[in-house]
């Protein structure tokens, strides 16, 4: 089976508040670029599918040079090829992104399984997998927690309200990956990391479209609350907290 994982490197979503500033439509800060966590989940599924089917997977990213972190990781995990669609860093119209990724995937000869993260943690668009599936006319399995190769197709587990659903789907198809123990990205082997650093990342010129969404403003959102602290030693803290809970939830304690 052939898989393509679409990866995106984003400003560290675990960066402390205030580390990222929002200015003139851009997000800035002395914060490292890391592979987006859900894109990591997608990459893990790609590795698993390629391994189980004795096939191969490729990795594609769209953006500036900052995207190479994720692509290098994909190479270290065994990607047969890594391609960056070269467009300026920063916000990009989601429909245009999907179109250009589709063109890149076609240029790579297509695939049986197209894997996306459910949502990139920078612009939180969460629509690229769907747009891609819609453009390509392929079925989309949203929020996949696990996937295994079953005959010519895949057996997948997807998140639904209050649980999950399992079943089979034929290829080609599009999966949007979610987090869970089955999609936790593995550590690359160091030998492979060293080799990956010597492999090339192919550049594909991005098309200039101009249409679609444009950022007209970007600002930090305000969080409110910041209430009082319960101070004192452990015992005093526990008493205070218990009191607070009793006030908020009538009828607790005493086995009610």
């Amino acid at each position: 089976m052939r898989a393509i994982a679409f990866v995106k490197s984003i400003l560290d979503p675990e960066a402390p508040p205030g580390a990222i500033r929002f200015d003139a439509g851009k997000a800035l800060g002395d914060v490292p670029q890391v592979l987006g966590p859900y894109e990591g989940n997608a990459l893990e599924l790609a590795v698993q599918i390629a391994e189980a089917s004795q096939g191969e997977f490729r990795a594609v990213a769209l953006g500036g040079p900052e995207q190479e972190a994720g692509l290098r990781k994909a190479l270290a995990l065994g990607a047969a090829q890594a391609m960056r669609v070269d467009v300026p860093s920063g916000f990009h119209d989601p429909l245009d992104t999907a179109r250009q990724l589709k063109a890149a995937a076609d240029a790579l000869g297509g695939a049986d399984v197209y894997l996306f993260g459910r949502q990139a943690g920078d612009w939180d668009q969460g629509v690229t997998a769907g747009l891609f599936a819609g453009l390509a006319g392929l079925p989309l399995v949203p929020l996949v927690q696990a996937a295994e190769v079953a005959g010519a197709g895949l057996k997948v587990r997807r998140e639904i309200a209050g649980g999950y659903e399992e079943g089979e789907i034929a290829v080609p198809c599009v999966l949007s990956a979610s987090n869970g123990p089955g999609t936790l990205l593995r550590l690359p082997k160091v030998k492979d990391v060293m080799l990956a650093n010597r492999k090339p990342i192919e550049l594909r010129a991005g098309a200039q479209s101009g249409a679609g969404f444009r950022v007209s403003d970007l600002k930090a959102s305000v969080t409110s609350r910041a209430g009082r602290r319960i101070e004192g030693d452990l015992k005093a803290q526990a008493e205070g907290l218990a009191q607070e809970l009793r006030r908020a939830i009538p009828g607790i304690g005493g086995g009610a």
Binding site: P17, T223, R225, A226, R228, L234, A242, G254
Partner: peptide, 28 residues
């Protein structure tokens, strides 16, 4: 940052606080 989004904050280690809290809730 959770404290900036909370109405009531307790700076404590949960494992140490929990036995005390259990006692406090039971005692009420």
């Amino acid at each position: 940052p959770i404290f900036a989004a909370a109405d009531v904050g307790v700076v404590a280690d949960w494992q140490a606080l929990w036995p005390e809290l259990r006692r406090a809730l039971a005692g009420g």
